[in-house]
Structure formats: C-alpha cells, structure tokens
C-alpha cells in the first residue's frame, strides 16, 4: 500500500500541492482525476521520486520511499511518464528489454528474456517486435513504453495519462491490460486518467483532485456522482447507469459553462 501524508510541493512561492493525504491500496487500480492543473501529475511524479516533495511523507508498505536506494525503488515501482520524449533508434524489443534493467543490470538471464516476451505478448506487440520506436505511430510507441514498464515486473505501476494519443481500440486494450494486471497478477496501478468514462468503468478507486488538494476519494460509486463531478469540473453532468456500465454525459451543457 502507498500512503501519502501531509504532502506539499511548491515552486518558489507558488504552491502546486498542499496537505495532500491519500491511500492507494494494493492490488487495486486507482485513477487520479481532476481538471487541468489540479496537481495530479505532480502527485504521481512525487510518488515516483522523479520530483522531491517540499514537505510531507510518502510510504510504501510502511517504508518511507525517500529512504530507499534508487536501484531498489526501481524494483518496486515502475513509472511511465506522459509522452516520453525519446527519439532514439531502438527496436521495440530492445526498449522492452531495458525494463529489465533494475533486475538484470544489463546481464540478461533466461528469466529476463521470459519477462520481455510476456510483456510483448501481453500488449499484442509481437508484429512490432523489430520495428524501430522512432518509426512507429505515437500510439504504438505509447504501447511499447507501457510494455517496458510492465516488463519491469514491479508491485506498483505509476502511469501518467497512459491513454494519451490513443485511438478508442488501443485505449480499451490498455485499460483491459491494466485490469488484468490488478486482477490476475495482484499489481497496484495508479494512473492519471482524463477520460472520466474510462476512469469510472475500469477503476476500483478514484482520487479526485482540485487546486492542489484531494477533492474527493473513495470507490467509484462514491466519487462518480452528478453533484460530486459537477462540483469538481464545474460542469453539468448526467450519469446514465446501464447494464454494461455507467456513462457520464457532459458533452452538452444547459448554459454557458460555469
């Protein structure tokens, strides 16, 4: 379990996060939602240790993450940033193999190769195995980076907008893959997700953020309500419950947006 206590982050005098408290339970998929600039990505990068907090504590299974060595942390938590700006000429297979670096330190064992093959198969990337990542589409590259993160085989995965740039089919494929990771492999997934419908239909828990603080947190049914989301985004929403899942309709507004 990852627990965030009294976390604050500011750049100079400008606070980005203040007094954030949240818990992310093991084996579950938690979505971070909220309007732009709410501090979702910053929170995720603080948990990933890619940013240092101004104050506050983040623990993983009771251990302060600041006390763990970089190499050890990489065996427990894998991070995929939004749009990794990487223009290197590597094949998809080579990229995914780098996901094994925390374990292999460059010397691949049979186990490492197995994990790479599994990650490639898991996201159906077999046809692209030898394609160069600077020559495939943005969505395919996103899938390749996700495969690298999965090959890292960590207990916890942090994903910043994994659905960015993806068409509907790829987006569904990734959300289903994340569900499988939680349900069958017991992984903990924390993802920043902008599409409220994906968040509502695939998550176990939702943490909604607004203005650098946690606005609401809880199970999907607790957070995804017309009044709650309306207040969070400043929009009129209609939530339609169907057999296959729920649908938040915010596309048409009665008046001008608030």
């Amino acid at each position: 379990m990852i627990k965030v206590t009294a976390l604050a982050k500011s750049y100079g005098n400008r606070p980005i996060l203040s007094d954030v408290r949240a818990e992310f339970s093991s084996g579950h998929l938690t979505s971070l939602i909220g309007p732009n600039g709410a501090g979702k990505s910053t929170l995720l990068m603080l948990i990933a240790r890619l940013l240092a907090p101004t104050s506050g504590i983040i623990t993983i299974d009771g251990t302060d993450i600041a006390s763990l060595a970089v190499g050890d942390y990489a065996k427990r938590v894998a991070t995929l940033r939004q749009r990794p700006d990487c223009n290197m000429r590597l094949s998809v297979e080579e990229l995914v193999t780098f996901g094994r670096f925390p374990h292999s330190r460059g010397r691949l064992t049979a186990e490492d190769r197995g994990a790479v093959n599994e990650a490639i198969a898991f996201l159906s990337l077999e046809p692209l195995r030898n394609a160069l990542i600077d020559e495939i589409s943005g969505g395919q590259r996103q899938m390749a980076f996700l495969a690298m993160t999965i090959a890292q085989e960590t207990q916890c995965l942090l994903l910043d907008e994994p659905l960015n740039n993806l068409d509907m089919k790829h987006a569904v494929q990734i959300m289903q893959a994340l569900r499988t990771l939680c349900d069958e492999l017991g992984r903990t997934v924390i993802a920043v997700i902008h599409d409220i419908n994906f968040a509502a239909n695939y998550s176990d828990h939702i943490v909604a953020m607004k203005d650098g603080a946690v606005h609401a947190a809880g199970s999907v049914s607790e957070v995804v309500t017309e009044s709650g989301l309306g207040e969070l985004y400043g929009l009129d929403l209609e939530i339609v419950e169907r057999q296959q899942g729920c649908l938040c309709n915010y596309f048409t507004q009665k008046g001008k947006t608030r």
Binding site: A74, L80, C86, F98, G99
Partner: peptide
C-alpha cells in the same frame, strides 16, 4: 557501462525510473 549510457540517452526520468543514479 554501455547499457547505462543508452539509458542516459532516454532522459533523466526514464533512467531514474529504471534505477540509475
């Protein structure tokens, strides 16, 4: 250190996430 230098080429965030100082 060839693997580590390749990782540097992927940027500080990816390199740090994969356990490199």
């Amino acid at each position: 250190f060839a693997h580590r230098f390749t990782l540097l080429g992927m940027g500080s965030d990816v390199a740090t996430s994969l356990g490199i100082s």
